[in-house]
């Protein structure tokens, strides 16, 4: 197989959607927080916690959807903590977010080690199975590439569309955007910036948790520490790349996943001639390049990282 033939295989495009799914969830979650004016660097830890708690729920006998729900609730809980510290108390969003990541990850490892004894092979669950969409999945090429995915992938794409529409077209979306641009103007409009920001961070963090759970409930079938592997940070970079717009976040995540899926297949063709670590670096370097290209052009929410205090300018 040639390096360009890879693009002609439906398997590549199916992998793109699969790899993109946690990134879509995570990027949408981070984007909602930031559109309301709050940077959430807790994402890496929240995704780790979501991956563990989702898996644990199913491992203990719960349904797969219950696992996804548990991950969302766990994410929401950490989001609430982040919001209380950064929105209510107005603490540094950078340091608090990192603190949330460290706390969520260490709590994850603690709970996992407490509930699952050390063993050579990690215990497994039966993950989400591929759903073939009737008629559409029979289409040549496209059917296999797009319409044979697991349920959370379809959910992620649907969520991106709903959130894009919701932010742009609904009163709630407008309120979130105003709070992220100018919370004082929002308050003058009768919107409570603090409550809205807390709500946005909680909801966004729930999505992050679900993104993490996709890793253990659909992409793999077991949990192991450090499995999130910086995906959270990649999501933070993708938000900038997407210029804080959900529809572009979807495209960004897919583009990013394309690089990832491609490098995985390229590794097989190139073999040992090039160290595999160089390929593994690509996602992180791509994120930096994405930031570089978009940093000056992106439309940053004007009140991002500015705590809102009533009566203070």
């Amino acid at each position: 197989m040639d390096a360009l033939d890879i693009f002609a295989s439906a398997g590549l495009w199916a992998a793109v959607l699969r790899i993109a799914t946690p990134l879509i969830f995570g990027t949408l979650g981070a984007l909602i927080c930031e559109r309301a004016g709050v940077l959430n660097l807790g994402i890496e830890g929240i995704m780790t916690f979501g991956a563990m708690i989702g898996w644990m729920t199913v491992y203990q006998g719960g349904d797969l959807w219950l696992g996804l729900l548990a991950a969302a609730l766990g994410g929401a809980a950490f989001g609430l903590l982040h919001a209380l510290l950064t929105v209510t108390l107005g603490l540094s969003q950078h340091v608090t977010g990192l603190g949330i990541t460290l706390f969520a990850s260490s709590l994850t490892y603690f709970i996992f080690r407490l509930s699952v004894p050390v063993s050579g092979t990690p215990p497994t669950i039966v993950p989400f199975q591929v759903i073939h969409i009737p008629v559409l999945s029979d289409l040549p090429f496209l059917g296999e590439a797009v319409f044979a995915q697991t349920a959370p992938t379809y959910l992620a794409v649907a969520l991106a569309i709903v959130i894009a529409w919701g932010l742009a077209r609904t009163p709630l979306g407008l309120a979130v955007r105003i709070v992220g641009e100018n919370p004082h103007a929002a308050e003058a409009q009768g919107i409570d910036p603090i409550r809205l920001r807390i709500g946005a961070v909680v909801f966004g963090s729930a999505l992050m948790g679900m993104g993490g759970a996709f890793l253990t409930l659909a992409a793999f079938n077991s949990f192991f520490p450090t499995m999130v592997q910086g995906r959270g940070w990649v999501c933070i970079a993708l938000v900038v790349f997407a210029s804080w717009r959900p529809e572009r976040a979807l495209l960004g995540a897919l583009l990013f996943a394309l690089f990832d899926a491609y490098q995985l297949r390229l590794q097989h063709i190139v073999g040992k001639a090039v160290p595999y670590q160089l390929f593994l670096m690509i996602p992180y370097l791509m994120s930096i390049v994405a930031l570089l290209v978009m940093a000056r052009r992106a439309r940053v929410p004007q009140a991002l990282m500015q705590p809102f205090r009533r009566g203070e300018r």
């Binding site: 540094s92 949330i100 706390f103 490892y109």
Partner: peptide, 18 residues
């Protein structure tokens, strides 16, 4: 689990911020 040390350390960052 010895991860309790990580929990204490990361928690102390959050409580320090408060």
């Amino acid at each position: 689990p010895s991860f309790i040390a990580d929990v204490i350390v990361s928690l102390s960052l959050l409580t320090m911020l408060v």
